[in-house]
Structures are given as structure tokens and as C-alpha cells.
Design a protein around this nucleic acid. Structure first.
Length: 549
RNA sequence: GCGCCCGUAGCUCAAUUGGAUAGAGCAUUGGACUACGAAUCCAAAGGUUGCAGGUUCGAGUCCUGCCGGGCGCGCCA
């Protein structure tokens, strides 16, 4: 990539000139086009090192640079000491040829170098259907997985199932009560039980499987209700996610950690390290020793392990037993208070807690009739993922979720999202793709053969907009690299909107299919480059690139 | 009270992780289809980046203190 090439060139020059080997400087794309395609602050940074005026330093560097390469069509020095580079068109044309050759592999940089990474996301309790907040996490996690595997990581997508603990017991009891109700018994439904209508559906299903449930021992019956309810709900969650185009490699059960005695084993390790103590009848982990603000209970006075204990073990497994190099957890922002605790646990195992990256996703606010309603104030009337898929559609919702950085709250206006119009940016990008496909359809009918790369005269691409498009296509590689390094799928979303915009502008100003056959062929290949990149970018977001709309 | 996140155009968000004159979309106003798809394009207008200091060649970005909003602070998950 060109940034690296320039960077290496510059390093070589300052080594020759002043013998400087280590220095931090930037090569970047300036916002304004009259500052060139790329720009460096090298001379400014060097000021302290060589004790010259930056402009003088820049002059020396540029002189050397001109002796070395023909890559640039122009190099400029601007006060206070920036050096600006204009890249020759040949480079961008070579890059277009690269795209046409690599096709869907274009943009793939090997950043991960085969490192094993586990992405854990959604992981909602199986106590009810997924809602719109989970959908944001699902879109984000899935897209991240696509981006990381595209950039050389070995990715495993996992859903951690909290199938154990108080909430599950309440779920079982809720179903049991509803069954009693269905059988005509008078019941009092406690405040903290699950009130959703789906509990009735589950109750009916349980009753179908165990018709004589109510004559069983109550505890045993509730246990049956619980197990079956979890199974039914998980099935439903899995289904919704698949409809949202999210497929997991693994569903990891919290309960299994206990059944396989893994919790015991890990607690023993901690005991041996003298990191566990007893107080008020409970077992505590000394997490303050590893940067947490207070010690945490791992086994309650009732003898039951806490959720945290299970999570410690789960992460022990991730790193020590399953040997992942990196773990990425995607959590709702309301879990931020939990981060220090878990990182403390990792540290206590001797695992560098930097290997665990926790992405906090901010809340999704619903906009209804122009008013903002947070999910929690809506009380039970969550917009379900299923509803979202049916009414808004997978493409539009994923695109909206992925058009923001995870750390800003997202306002989701369902009515707006439903509109298939200019207000909905996903169609803007998809339309660019469909338009290109439509041109190819027409070219095919006209029997234009534009696929013989060696015979294409790319010098025919003389318009300013054409050069701009070529540059934009080159930028895709940097965008991918950035998105991968900073776990930022929204960068790709923005890139696609920009590319689509440039294409639409170009399309409406110039004709692709004209009487000039060699020009037509050159332009068709430029379009093909756009199509490849649009499709790939959308694919990394989990959005389809339709040929017709 | 303590901790985390956020505050940028009327609205929703960007700004290449410290770069140059802060950019898009929507909404508003005015224009463009008898040649490749008008789900498009062109143009106008819109700003003291919440406030006040500090760090430096250079701050929307980093530091400190306020103001405003969200979320946490369980032997819940």
C-alpha cells in the first residue's frame, strides 16, 4: 500500500541524511485536495532532532526524494513544514488492474497473521426473545467477525448461554405458574417473574410434552419447566439470529462448566495461590489485588457459585485451555462496571488482560412519533428482533446499526427505517451496485467485450471524476485496515456511502456506454472495480448487494 | 457521592486516533429525465465543536475544573 511505500522511502532518506533510525511521524491523506493525495509531518517532527527550520528540512528531504522515485507526479512543501505528495495516475490504474485481478480478495491485508480470536456477542439470557438492543450487538459482532477473518485472523463466533442461576429458576417458576393458570387454578403472579406473553406459549408447549406435570412433585415440575423453557427460547433466539444472517460457530453453556467440574478446578487453582478467602459464610476472590475496587463473591453463603465465578472460568477456558490469542467481548454499556472484575480475574491467572478486548455498545433508543423512548421505559413492549426483520428488513437494520461507532447511543426510528427512500442510506449504496449491474446487462446486449484486460486502454480515463474514483477505490485497503485495527465496522459503512456518492455523480455526468469503443471498455472496467468493492464492502457488513432493486 | 460513556449545523452523525480553511445525509429553498435505472444529480443556506483554563509549531481530538445527558456502583445476570 502506498502509505507504507512513502513511509519507507522517507525513513530511508532521513537515515541517509542524518542517520536517524527511530522517529515517529505520520503519512496521511489530507482533507483538502490542494494538499495533495498524501502528506507528511516528518519535517515538523524532525525539528527537535536536527535543530533546523522545518521548511529547510523539508527541502532537503524533497531533493533526495526526487532522485529516488517517479511515483509522484508532484511534491510540494507548505508552511509550517508539511510535505505534500501527488501520486501519479499510473499507480491508481495499476491498482484498478489489481482489483480486477484479485476480485473479492481485494482489500484483504494480513493483519492477524493467523492469530486465533474468539468473538463473543449477544449472549442474552435465554429468558425471552431478542430485542432491538441485542440486534445492534448482533450486527456489530457479526460484521467484526467478517472483517477480522478477511484480515487474516482465525475467528470463532460464540454465544455464551447463561443457562444457570437465579434468573433461570425464575423463568422455570414463571412457566409453572402459567401452566397452573391455564389449568384453571387461581394464581398470584409475583412482580419479578417473567410476564411476557411468550411464557404462555411455552407453558402450552410444556404441557403438551408433560400432560401430567401438575401431579408431579412441584420442585421437579419446575425443573422440567425450566429446562424445556430454556430449550424453546434458545431455539427461538437461534432462529431469529439466523434470519438476521448471524451464524455462530459455538453455543457455549454456562451450566456445562459446572457439569464438567471446571469451576471447581479453577477455584482450586485460585485457592492454591491464596486468592480465595471466607467471610460471612461466602467465598471471596481477592480481586482488589489486581486492580478491582472491591473483592468479589464467587460462592454464595447458600453454596451456589455466582455468575462471576462461571465467567472467570469461562475466560480461563478461552485463554488457557482453548488457547485463543485474543478474545473480544461485546457487551451492553450497562455492563461496564463488570470490566475491572473480569480483567482482574485474568490477571490473577497470569493472563495479560490486554488480550481481552471489551467493546461496550451503547443503548438503542426508539423513536416513536418523533419522541425518544428508551427500551427500559417501554416495559415489556420491546421491539423484538423478529419484528425488526419483518418490518424494516435485514439489510436496512444492519446498515443503520453499523453506521455509528458503538460508543454513541443510537436513535432508531422504525418508521424512517421502513421507508424505501432517499432517507434510508442503505438503498443509496445498493442502488449504486444495481445501477452498475444494469449497465453490464446493457453492455452484454450490445455485445461489448470489455474483459480482455491487456487490451484495455486505461489512458482513456481522463476525467477528474475518473481519477477521483480510482483514488477512492485505492482507499478501500486503508479503510479495511483501519476497521480491523480499531474494530470499527462503521468505517466501512461511511466509505461505502462516499464511494456510492462518487459513483452516482460520475454516472450522471458521463456516459459509460458510448460510440468510442475503447473509452467504453475503459469505463466499464472502472465500473467493474466499483462493483467489486461495493459488493465486498457490503458483504463485510452482512448486507446484500442486489443486482436489481 | 464514586466510576464509565457521550456533548460538533434545526435533526441524525463524520472528521484518517494531535494536522492545514470542521465535513456528509436528512429537513428547507431553487433547478435537472424523448440516450446506460430520477431509489439519482446540480445549486443555495446552515458552526464561538457545551463553558473556562492548560499542554505545543498545531486541539473537536490530550490534561484540569465546571455545566448538561445516559449507564453502572448486589452473596442479580
Amino acid at each position: 500500500m502506498i502509505k507504507k511505500i512513502i513511509s519507507e522511502l522517507l525513513k530511508e532518506i532521513i537515515r541517509d541524511l542524518w542517520g536517524i533510525k527511530e522517529i515517529v511521524f505520520e503519512v496521511e491523506k489530507p482533507k483538502k485536495e490542494n494538499y495533495g493525495d498524501y502528506s507528511t509531518n516528518l519535517a515538523l517532527v524532525l525539528k527537535k532532532e536536527v535543530n533546523f527550520a522545518p521548511l529547510k528540512i523539508a527541502k532537503k528531504i524533497v531533493k533526495k526524494l526526487e532522485e529516488k522515485t517517479f511515483l509522484f507526479s508532484k511534491v510540494d512543501i507548505v508552511s509550517p513544514g508539511f510535505i505534500n505528495f501527488w501520486i501519479s495516475k499510473d499507480y491508481y490504474i495499476e491498482n484498478l488492474k489489481k482489483i480486477l485481478k484479485l476480485k473479492e480478495k481485494y482489500g484483504s491485508v494480513d493483519i492477524g497473521q493467523g492469530k486465533k480470536v474468539i468473538i463473543e456477542f449477544v449472549s442474552a439470557n435465554p429468558t425471552g426473545p431478542l430485542h432491538i438492543g441485542h440486534a445492534r450487538g448482533a450486527a456489530y459482532g457479526d460484521s467484526l467477525a467478517r472483517i477480522l477473518s478477511f484480515t487474516g485472523y482465525k475467528v470463532v463466533k460464540e454465544y455464551y448461554i447463561n443457562d444457570k442461576g437465579t434468573q433461570m429458576d425464575i423463568l422455570g417458576a414463571s412457566v409453572y405458574l402459567r401452566i397452573k393458570e391455564l389449568k384453571g387454578e387461581k394464581i398470584v403472579f409475583p412482580e419479578n417473574y417473567y410476564k411476557g406473553n411468550y411464557i404462555y406459549d411455552i407453558a402450552r408447549e410444556v404441557l403438551g410434552t408433560y400432560p401430567y406435570l401438575l401431579s408431579m412433585d412441584e420442585n421437579k415440575a419446575i425443573e422440567f419447566c425450566k429446562d424445556l423453557a430454556i430449550k424453546i427460547i434458545l431455539e427461538d433466539i437461534k432462529n431469529s439470529l439466523e434470519n438476521f444472517r448471524v451464524f455462530y460457530d459455538n453455543w457455549y453453556s454456562e451450566k456445562s462448566l459446572y457439569e464438567n467440574k471446571k469451576v471447581e478446578k479453577v477455584l482450586n487453582i485460585l485457592r492454591e495461590k491464596n486468592l480465595i478467602y471466607e467471610k460471612e459464610g461466602a467465598l471471596w476472590f481477592k480481586s482488589t489485588l489486581f486492580g478491582d475496587e472491591k473483592d468479589r463473591v464467587v460462592v454464595r453463603s447458600t453454596g451456589e457459585a455466582t455468575y462471576f465465578a462461571g465467567d472467570m472460568v469461562y475466560h480461563y477456558e478461552k485463554f488457557i485451555e482453548r488457547k485463543f490469542d485474543l478474545a473480544i467481548n461485546i457487551w451492553g454499556a450497562d455492563h461496564h462496571g463488570y470490566i475491572n472484575r473480569l480483567k482482574a480475574a485474568l490477571n490473577s491467572f497470569g493472563i495479560d488482560s490486554e488480550r481481552l478486548k471489551i467493546i461496550l455498545i451503547q443503548m438503542v433508543n426508539l423513536i416513536e412519533d418523533g419522541e425518544r423512548k428508551s427500551m427500559s421505559t417501554r416495559q415489556g413492549e420491546f421491539v423484538e428482533l423478529k419484528e425488526l426483520i419483518n418490518e424494516v428488513g435485514v439489510d436496512a437494520s444492519r446498515f443503520i446499526f453499523l453506521s455509528r461507532s458503538p460508543d454513541t447511543p443510537l436513535d432508531f426510528d422504525i418508521e424512517l427505517a421502513k421507508k424505501r427512500s432517499q432517507e434510508n442510506p442503505v438503498y443509496y449504496v445498493q442502488y449504486a451496485h444495481a445501477r452498475i449491474c444494469s449497465i453490464f446487462e446493457k453492455a452484454k446486449n450490445l455485445k461489448i467485450n470489455y474483459l480482455f484486460l491487456d487490451e484495455i486502454d486505461f489512458e482513456k480515463l481522463k476525467e477528474k471524476e475518473e481519477l477521483e474514483l480510482l483514488k477512492k477505490l485505492e482507499e478501500f485497503q486503508e479503510t479495511i485496515e483501519f476497521a480491523s485495527n480499531f474494530l470499527a465496522p462503521y468505517k466501512i459503512t461511511y466509505y461505502l456511502l462516499e464511494l456510492a456518492k462518487q459513483f452516482h455523480e460520475y454516472y450522471s455526468k458521463y456516459r459509460i456506454l458510448s460510440d468510442d469503443l475503447s473509452l467504453t471498455c475503459a469505463r466499464l472496467n472502472l465500473c467493474l472495480g466499483c462493483k467489486i468493492v461495493l459488493k465486498k464492502g457490503l458483504e463485510l457488513l452482512g448486507v446484500f448487494a442486489p443486482e436489481k432493486m
